[in-house]
Amino acid sequence: MKVFRMAAVLALVAGPAFAQDSPHINLMADGPAKTEDEKAADVARDKAYKETLKKIPDAKASSDPWGGMRAEPPKQPAPKAAAATSTHKKPKAGTASN
């Protein structure tokens, strides 16, 4: 019974390995070739499609729907003239310093 189980396990493990080495056979039959009428219809359809694409206008406007809802960026304040000087204030007596 153990031999049968081992043979079954070996067959299950080895099956995918053998499937990878099998020759690639296309079981689907190739479709029939297109007739001249079908080829002409395809060419006409492609031409009409390309002409339709040429009629589409170029998008020049922004397509951002939230563009008007955003606030303008904050303006940077001008540097103060007093901050440019290097005068240090001494803390008052009795106050805690940071």
Rank of each mutant, 00 (worst) to 15 (best):
K39A: 15
V43N: 07
S63G: 10
I56H: 01
V43G: 07
K2C: 00
D42W: 12
S63R: 05
S62V: 00
A11P: 08
I56M: 15
S86R: 07
A59T: 02
M1L: 02
K2Q: 01
L53V: 00
S97L: 02
Q76F: 04
G31M: 04
K47H: 02
D21G: 06
E36I: 12
T52R: 15
I25L: 07
F18T: 01
E72C: 00
E51M: 07
T35P: 10
A11G: 13
K80G: 05
F18S: 09
T95H: 03
M6A: 12
K47A: 09
K50Q: 06
K89F: 08
M6Y: 06
A84I: 04
G31A: 15
T95D: 08
R70E: 13
T95G: 00
K55C: 14
A33N: 06
P32A: 14
G68R: 09
G68F: 14
G94F: 11
V3Q: 01
P65F: 02
D58G: 06
A44E: 11
N26L: 03
M6R: 15
R5L: 15
K80A: 06
V9S: 14
E51T: 03
K50D: 01
A83E: 12
P73K: 13
A83S: 02
F4E: 03
K50N: 01
D30H: 05
N98E: 06
G68Q: 05
E36M: 13
L10H: 04
S86K: 08
A83M: 05
K80V: 01
G67D: 04
L53N: 03
M28F: 05
Y49I: 05
V13W: 01
M6F: 13
M1I: 00
A17M: 01
P73W: 01
H24K: 10
A14Y: 00
P74H: 06
W66F: 11
A71Y: 01
E72W: 04
G15M: 09
A19G: 05
K60R: 09
A44D: 05
G68N: 13
E38Y: 06
K39I: 13
S22K: 15
H88S: 07
K50G: 00
A71V: 10
R70N: 14
E36Q: 15
R45E: 11
A33R: 03
A61Y: 13
D46A: 15
A81K: 14
T35S: 15
D21T: 13
R5E: 12
A11N: 06
L10M: 10
V43F: 09
P57A: 11
G94Q: 08
A48H: 04
T85G: 03
P16V: 04
P32I: 08
A19S: 10
H24A: 08
R70T: 12
D64V: 02
K50H: 03
H24Q: 10
P73G: 04
D42H: 13
A78C: 04
A93L: 14
P57F: 08
R45Q: 14
